[in-house]
């Protein structure tokens, strides 16, 4: 017997491709991790399922990148930030703000997805619309 490898990253990428953010949920202690993990960070169980999480949160830090790697040079300057989701988990993502809107601490944001791209790089954060 051998253990099957659970394709955590692929599951995340597939969900992002469907305009959803998923986390892993531990079947033993119900801890949710975003991004998903193969082993529960709290109780170390490897009985993991996936759950779609609320694609909303607040901006806890950010930078404006002026000197970019070759694949991102065309986009510079761009705003990259860390967003704390409603469940307390965090994700890095690009911010897409309307002209004249500056990033600020605790700014409420929601996920958007770049249609022309695939996988984790599709994730964008835009101001939250109630």
């Amino acid at each position: 017997m051998h253990r099957e490898v659970v394709q955590i990253v692929k599951s995340y990428e597939d969900a992002i491709n469907q305009n959803r953010i998923i986390g892993s949920i531990c079947e033993d202690c119900e801890t949710i991790s975003v991004p998903p993990r193969a082993v529960c960070k709290k109780c170390w169980s490897d009985k993991i399922d996936f759950t779609t999480v609320e694609p909303q949160g607040k901006l806890i830090t950010w930078t404006v990148i002026h000197i970019a790697p070759p694949t991102y040079v065309d986009k510079a300057p761009y705003i990259l930030g860390i967003v704390e989701l409603l469940n307390g988990e965090r994700l890095t993502g690009l911010l897409r703000l309307p002209e004249g809107v500056e990033p600020e601490f605790d700014m409420e944001v929601e996920a958007a997805f770049e249609e022309s791209l695939e996988g984790a790089q599709r994730l964008r954060w835009i101001p939250y619309h109630k």
């Binding site: 990253v9 990148i65 761009y78 890095t92 996988g119």
Partner: peptide, 28 residues
């Protein structure tokens, strides 16, 4: 290109794919 090579020391799936650089990480 050096910036890109160094950025590969960050998480490729959840950080590098989104354009993180090391100056960017430490800026945050």
């Amino acid at each position: 290109h050096v910036t890109e090579a160094l950025a590969m020391c960050a998480d490729d799936v959840y950080e590098v794919s989104l354009g993180i650089t090391f100056p960017g990480a430490f800026a945050m």
